[in-house]
Design a protein around this nucleic acid. Structure first.
Lengths: 123, 123
DNA sequence: ATCTTCTTTGCTCATATGTACATTCTCCCA
DNA sequence: TGGGAGAATGTACATATGAGCAAAGAAGAT
């Protein structure tokens, strides 16, 4: 949908055809969705967490200390980030004795990383 | 690929089969890619920028003040964020006289938002 | 040339974020 | 019941980030 369908070639939102305003308003994302989206993406917005997520993408399930070793991070740092990833429901934790095994929560996680990598590699 | 293919049921990366280490190392993302990815995702990690990107997803091309009005933001705030989005090559700017029209840089942007929204709406 | 409109850019401050260190918790085993 | 390994949490601190305000650029209009 292009702007010219609605407006003369002037700025100021006040001059936009009411139809256009309605068109946009109908499609505006609810504030709640925007919030959720930004929280989702902010989970991906850190190198540490990306390393963790990528490791879990390569090997389905890993414990905290494996993640720490593979990502070259302290156990503490990994654990803190895992909590955040858990809260945002990007990873799933499974306890087995003393060990806690983590895995990606759903396929959206790998999809987002794949598309992101595609974009990043193009530039 | 599951961890059991490589390791006994013990922690400590040192006990992982050398084959597994090699397997992971081969697939490790270069630090450069990780950095680029986190920069990419951090661009999506803010409500203001998401509103801007979503508006551009609904209407192909918009000027700064339309974006400000539609997203209910100050022109200054929008402009600051547009600079960031430009730097990260997520939007494209076209000047026409006094006006500068912005549009999404490529289809990855809408793809990422679509998948993100899918994920966000499931929870 | 000057004014006006649209946009961009410094600068600053309050808030958010990531990590380290120390502590606590959970569970297995002796 | 202790002891020890793996994991989670609290706190503190340095850095990063977002928004507002004021000023400066760019380009059409008078």
């Amino acid at each position: 949908m292009s702007k010219e369908d609605f407006t003369a070639d002037v700025c100021s939102i006040n001059e936009i055809d009411p139809e256009a305003v309605a068109f946009v308003q109908e499609r505006v994302m609810p504030a709640r969705t925007i919030e959720r989206l930004s929280r989702l993406f902010s989970a991906f917005a850190d190198p540490t967490r990306l390393r963790i997520l990528h490791a879990l993408n390569v090997i389905d399930e890993l414990c905290v200390c494996d993640l720490a070793a593979l990502s070259d991070l302290s156990v503490s740092a990994v654990s803190h980030q895992l909590r955040l990833l858990r809260d945002r429901e990007l990873v799933h934790a499974r306890r087995d004795g003393r060990m806690v095994y983590y895995s990606l929560a759903d396929e959206h996680v790998s999809q987002l990383m794949a598309i992101g990598a595609e974009h990043a590699n193009e530039r």
